[in-house]
Amino acid sequence: MKIVKMLPFLDKEELSELLDSLIKGELKEENIRISALLPFLEKEQISHLFERAVAGEANIRPAAILPFLDEDDYEGIIDSLVENEPETLSLEELLPFLSEANIKKVFRLFLEKEKKQE
C-alpha cells in the first residue's frame, strides 16, 4: 500500500516520525514526497519544516511550504528576509501570500533599508 494513501489516517506523532525520516533521507522520495505531507501537518511541524528548508536541510523548496504558513509566521519571515535574504527564498516568492498590510510593510522596510545603504 502506498504511504500517501495512509496519510489521512496518521496521527500527529506518526506524521512527525514520517517527516523526520523524510528530512533525514531515510525514506526514498519515490515512496513519498515531503510536499504530500504538508496538508496534514500541524502548525508547529510546518514551521519546523520551513526553517529546515530555508537552511537547505530538507529536500523541499521553502516556497512550496509558503501556502501552508499562517499570517503570524509571514510577519517573522518578512523581518528576516528584508534583513538578510537567504539563497533558498526570495521576498518576491513570499509577496503573493501576504495580506495588504504585510505587503505594505515589505515595501516600507525595503525602502528604509535602501535609504540606510545610501
Binding site: 526570495s90 521576498l91 518576491e92 509577496l95 503573493p96 515589505v106 515595501f107 525595503f110 525602502l111 535602501e114
Partner: peptide
Amino acid sequence: KTLPTIDNFL
C-alpha cells in the same frame, strides 16, 4: 508568470 523584484516594482 512571475513578479518583479521589490526594487523593480518601485
